[in-house]
Simulated scan of single mutants.
Amino acid sequence: MTAYLTGCWLKTAFPSRRTARRRARQIRGEGGPHFRTYRCHRCAAVHLAHKPGHATHLRTTYHGPINVLEHAA
């Protein structure tokens, strides 16, 4: 598997930080999680990532995502 597939596949690629920040605010306004923006070194686009402490799941597995609350045990 290539670095692009492991890092960028299925992520939304925004053309600028301004556009990404606008989308992050929109998601937050709809009751979604907090996001931060970052410039991807693989594809040079801007992606969204969860802010530290605001993740909704840890990893996606074969059976689906592992929720943070389930992992706290």
Rank of each mutant, 00 (worst) to 15 (best):
V46G: 04
H63V: 12
C8T: 07
E30W: 06
R28D: 00
H63N: 07
T12K: 09
L10A: 15
A3S: 15
G31R: 11
Y62G: 11
P15C: 02
C8E: 03
L69Q: 04
G32P: 07
E30N: 05
P15G: 00
R39L: 11
T37V: 12
F14Q: 04
P15E: 02
L58Y: 08
F14G: 01
H63P: 07
L5P: 07
G31D: 01
H63I: 08
W9T: 01
R36C: 12
P65V: 00
P15M: 00
R21G: 05
C40N: 15
R42W: 15
H41E: 14
R18I: 06
F35Y: 10
V68K: 00
L5Y: 15
I27Y: 01
M1E: 10
C8M: 08
N67I: 03
G31M: 07
H50W: 15
G64V: 06
R17S: 02
R22G: 05
H41D: 13
Y4N: 06
V68C: 04
L48H: 13
T19F: 14
R39K: 13
H57N: 10
T2F: 08
T61R: 02
Y38N: 09
I27D: 01
R36W: 12
T56H: 09
P65Q: 01
T61L: 06
G53P: 08
R22H: 04
L69R: 07
A13Q: 14
C40S: 14
M1F: 07
R59E: 09
L5V: 11
V68H: 00
I66M: 08
H54G: 11
L48V: 13
L48P: 04
R22T: 10
E70W: 01
C40E: 13
K51T: 12
P65G: 05
R28N: 04
T6N: 08
T6F: 03
H54R: 15
V46I: 13
A72Y: 09
V68N: 01
S16Q: 04
K51A: 06
T56E: 10
G7M: 04
T61S: 05
P15N: 00
A49H: 07
H34P: 14
N67K: 12
T60A: 07
R21H: 12
C8K: 09
Q26V: 05
V46D: 02
G31W: 05
T61P: 04
A45D: 06
R23H: 07
T2M: 09
T19N: 12
K11C: 12
A20V: 09
A3G: 15
A45C: 10
K51Q: 12
Y62C: 15
R17K: 04
A20R: 03
T37Y: 15
A13N: 10
N67F: 03
T56K: 13
A3C: 14
I27N: 00
A55K: 12
A20Y: 12
T12M: 06
C40K: 14
H41M: 13
G29N: 01
F14R: 04
C40T: 13
T2W: 06
M1Q: 11
A73Q: 03
T61D: 04
S16K: 03
T2R: 14
R25C: 03
H63F: 13
K11Q: 11
P65H: 01
T61H: 05
H41P: 10
H71W: 01
T2N: 13
H57K: 10
E70I: 05
R42F: 15
R39F: 06
C40Y: 14
H41T: 14
E70T: 02
I27R: 03
R42K: 10
R18S: 08
I66H: 01
Y4D: 06
T2K: 13
